[in-house]
């Protein structure tokens, strides 16, 4: 026993190294495979630091932010019911809202990693839950993966494991938006059936199948269409409509009917 202690003491540098690495890798594995939530325990500190920093840094982008908000206001005004000219139709109904939007400020974000996340300054106290979609006025941004009381972590579209169901606007064919980890302005639309023709500049929108994003949110435009030979499905290179390097304000989307839809789907699964 004493010899063992002496041995460990003699090689303590090596043993400590192994011990620390085991600890680090257990964290990595937990983080990778169970998507463990640690924001609850660390969110308060990191959130506060990022928030303080952001309160200072946001002064430098005020002009840009203002312009964006004005643009968006104008667009929203255009979609108000008063903005439409009514003809003599007798029946007028307004759809009940299905999606609700919660505004939030981005307090930290990355684009240079293979797995990019954003942190926003709204959390469970503001009605945010996991798996909600996050967008800007320009298009989709990501999905909420972790929440604490006042902050949420959002898995960006720029995440090599993130897949978003998308649709080609002109012919309504479905595909999957993926990111290959190369360039933050471009991603791939995969699983396009080979008979579908695409040309540069075609618009890609969210499909609405996932209940996370409403149908028709902008994703990007086609940059290059690559018809691989002998493949069942084709890929297209897409320019994202959102500049992920310039995110200041985002909207978190709540689908009011989501629970109902998911319940139905689960019943369907149970029947099979």
């Amino acid at each position: 026993m004493r010899q063992l202690f002496a041995f460990i003491l003699k090689h303590h540098f090596f043993f400590l190294f192994i011990l620390l690495e085991i600890f680090a890798f257990s964290l990595i594995v937990r983080n990778n495979y169970q998507r463990a939530t640690f924001l609850n325990s660390t969110g308060k500190i990191t959130g506060t630091v990022y928030n303080t920093y952001n309160n200072i840094a946001e002064y430098f982008t005020l002009r840009k932010t203002n312009n964006e908000l004005v643009d968006e206001n104008a667009r929203l005004r255009n979609s108000l019911s008063q903005s439409f000219l009514y003809t003599d139709s007798l029946i007028h109904y307004e759809k009940d809202s299905l999606f609700k939007y919660i505004g939030a400020k981005v307090i930290s974000s990355t684009i240079s990693k293979q797995k990019n996340y954003l942190m926003i300054d709204k959390g469970s106290d503001h009605g945010i839950h996991k798996d909600m979609g996050v967008i800007t006025s320009k298009g989709i941004v990501g999905t909420v993966v972790d929440i604490s009381a006042n902050f949420s972590r959002v898995m960006s579209v720029l995440h090599i494991n993130n897949k978003v169901n998308a649709r080609i606007k002109k012919n309504r064919h479905l595909g999957n938006m993926e990111w290959d980890g190369k360039y933050y302005r471009q991603g791939l639309l995969t699983d396009i059936p080979t008979h579908v023709r695409l040309s540069k500049g075609d618009t890609i929108i969210s499909s609405g199948n996932s209940h996370i994003f409403p149908e028709g949110m902008l994703v990007g435009t086609v940059e290059d269409y690559d018809t691989e030979h002998n493949e069942k499905f084709n890929k297209a290179l897409i320019n994202y409509s959102v500049d992920f390097n310039n995110l200041y304000y985002v909207y978190v989307i709540t689908n009011i009917m989501k629970d109902e839809i998911i319940e139905l789907e689960e019943n369907e699964k149970a029947d099979e």
């Binding site: 303590h12 540098f13 400590l16 600890f23 964290l27 660390t42 630091v49 990022y50």
Partner: peptide, 27 residues
Amino acid sequence: GWFLLLSSFALGFGIDIFAGTLGMHTA
């Protein structure tokens, strides 16, 4: 040596907490 390892560990862990990448920078 033990202090070298532990302080590097602490630094990596600190970075990880902020970046939300637990374990990566630590390891």
